[in-house]
Design a protein around this nucleic acid. Structure first.
Length: 604
DNA sequence: TTAGGGTTAG
């Protein structure tokens, strides 16, 4: 007769989870023990081991069970899926069937979760058949919802998930949420929102989960109008006090570029957590980087501890603003908190140092990373490319492929752009061919624009034009802009005229194109077209935004534009500039008058 | 013994 004492003396139970020890304290250890109770207790222990992540202990305990009932098998399946060992969960299920144990609704829903995670549609279909045979489908809402989730994840479309959903007699909140999520996860936000509306019309059970997903769907579409309607429904149904729902509303306003609404929601939120702050900081990083740094500072001063998400956003803000000193200070904070090893954060640091001009520091981060992913390599390549190190980019690409990472479109854009700027035309063309022929990455407008730029920048304007003519789709404005740039650089007025007219046809508001085209007319003495174009330009477009450059000096950012006159506070800068110009003239710099761009005001 | 949601990088 087994007793709890004997059970406790077994080597498998050291160390026992504290939760188990607590529960054992209430058991009479010296009383004879019923094997049935022992089975239940062992199953509880297996579950506790899985909760703790002690998979092997759970497994050996299960292996030694003399009799395993359906609950024990199901706990193993659930345990493995909860620890992301889905293949093992499936194997347990197969062994269970082989042992002749009949699954119940708990087993079926647990194994369907494993099928979903493995994206194993055929396994899921097999389980579906079994569920029908043993009569669990239609009698357990857990099974129905799990089936729907499996089909939504594993199928190419939502038809099967929808069929299961329609057959559920009493749909609960999870049924609705699972269906809405099925659509939104496959980027069909409108589909998800249609189900959300149907849920209202049919009087379905509302839950904060469905509101969060609906709000997130509005954000993906970028529709603040729809988002505001869902926001109103959130208030009407009393979900305004739910923190995750309000966090998703905050995110929606940021992603829909409604900065003032985001600020207002944030200000009115009575409860805030780290995610609330992170959402606002990440949102403002793209809307207004400087403001996102101010919000970060407010977060810290209010005693909220920043995490990897927070730092990734503020480091990206520093990259956008090219403020090295601030980025370095934040990097110190990251090291101090021991967040150095976070992959996404390291990727953001690579990008920040490169954009702030310190590509060597980017490489230090990159080479010190214990694990890298596609983004790490791409960030490093873009950094090197922007600094004119084309050969390093090509080397990195080859090294990345050797390490087993599959390149995507953005990597090829990085390689092509780097080759273009470094004059490695044939090398770039080789990668363009490899991209389609070997890596099965389909070239799109952006890739073609890179290749046109690659050829055009090197003076192979005719080849660039031939490439455009043979493109498998209609070239968009970016392609013609790339050709126009090449024509300007290599003085090809007739082709430049053609490219400029194409650009104006597609984007009539681009001031720079008018200026370039009118300069071409002026260069060939075609004053009639020059005058009419300038007239058209004045009536159709707004003033061209002036390009600016800036440097960071002693924790202060100095910004410059053509024609700036410096006031006395910038005397030092002025002196440096004058000496630079002097030096440039000494080494033979001559102003390129052909490229001189007439400002609108210059003509008046 | 079961299920569904919100924040990060190129």
């Amino acid at each position: 007769m087994a007793s709890c004492k004997k059970l406790l003396s077994s080597t498998h139970f050291r160390p026992l989870p504290s939760s188990v020890l607590n529960s054992l304290r209430y058991i009479q250890l010296d009383t004879p023990f019923n094997p049935k109770d022992l089975k239940g207790l062992t199953t509880d222990l297996i579950k506790s081991y899985f909760d703790k992540g002690s998979i092997e202990e759970a497994r050996s305990l299960f292996d030694e069970m003399p009799q395993r009932d359906v609950i024990a098998w199901t706990v193993m399946i659930t345990g493995y899926t909860s620890c992301n060992h889905h293949k093992r969960a499936w194997n347990v299920f197969s062994n269970m069937l082989r042992d002749g144990v009949k699954p119940n609704a708990f087993t079926v829903s647990a194994v369907l979760k494993a099928c979903k995670s493995l994206k194993a549609l055929s396994c899921g279909e097999l389980v579906h058949g079994l569920a029908i045979k043993i009569g669990t489908q239609g009698s357990s809402i857990y099974v129905d919802n799990a089936l729907m989730d499996m089909y939504a994840t594993c199928c190419d479309n939502m038809d099967n998930a929808r069929l299961v959903f329609e057959d559920i007699v009493t749909k609960n909140a999870v049924s609705w949420t699972t269906l809405i999520t099925g659509y939104t996860h496959r980027r069909d936000s409108y589909g998800g929102l249609r189900v959300f509306r149907q849920m209202f019309m049919e009087g379905g059970e509302l839950s904060p989960f469905s509101f969060s997903i609906a709000v997130s769907a509005c954000a993906s579409i970028g529709s603040s109008n729809l988002g505001k309607q869902v926001h109103a429904a959130v208030i009407n149904h009393g979900f305004e006090s739910n923190l995750p729902v309000m966090n998703s509303i905050l995110d929606m306003y940021c992603r829909c570029r409604c900065a003032s609404e985001a600020k207002q929601v944030f200000g009115e939120m009575t409860q805030k957590d780290t995610i609330t702050w992170n959402t606002l900081i990440a949102g403002f990083q793209t809307l207004d980087s400087k403001e996102s740094l101010c919000i970060f500072s407010q977060m810290v001063s209010e005693g909220v501890s920043p995490n990897c998400f927070t730092f990734t956003s503020v480091i990206a803000a520093c990259a956008n603003l090219a403020i090295l000193y601030c980025g370095q200070q934040l990097h110190g904070g990251i090291t101090h908190r021991g967040l150095d090893n976070n992959l996404e954060l390291s990727n953001a640091l690579i990008d920040m140092y490169a954009k702030c001009g310190n590509v060597d520091d980017s490489h230090k981060i990159f080479s010190g990373m214990p694990h890298t992913n596609l983004v790490s390599w791409t960030s490093m390549m873009i950094g090197y490319g922007a600094h004119g190190h084309g050969n390093e980019v090509v080397e990195l690409f080859n090294e990345m492929v050797r390490s087993g990472i599959k390149p995507d479109k953005i990597v090829f854009m990085a390689v092509l752009s780097a080759c273009s700027h470094a004059g490695l035309v044939d090398e770039g063309l080789k990668y363009f061919k490899l991209m389609t022929n070997y890596y099965n990455v389909a070239p799109d407008q952006e890739i073609y624009a890179c290749v046109v730029d690659l050829l055009g920048r090197a003076g192979r304007v005719k080849e660039a034009y031939e490439l455009i003519e043979n493109m498998p789709f209609m070239p968009d404005e970016s392609i013609w802009v790339a050709l126009l740039g090449a024509c300007k650089k290599h003085k090809q007025p007739s082709m430049g005229k053609l490219a400029a007219l194409k650009v104006l046809d597609m984007k009539p508001n681009k001031a720079g194109t008018y200026v370039l085209l009118s300069n071409i007319y002026a260069a060939e003495g075609n004053w009639a077209d020059f005058a009419s174009l300038r007239k058209l330009m004045r009536s159709t477009i707004s003033k061209k935004e002036v390009g600016r450059s800036w440097i960071e000096l002693k924790n202060q950012v100095y910004s410059f534009a053509v024609g700036d006159r410096f006031v006395s506070s910038n005397e030092e800068v002025c002196e440096v500039l004058e000496s630079l110009v002097k030096h440039m003239k000494q080494v033979g710099y001559v102003l390129d008058l052909d490229c001189f761009v007439h400002d609108l005001e210059d003509e008046t």
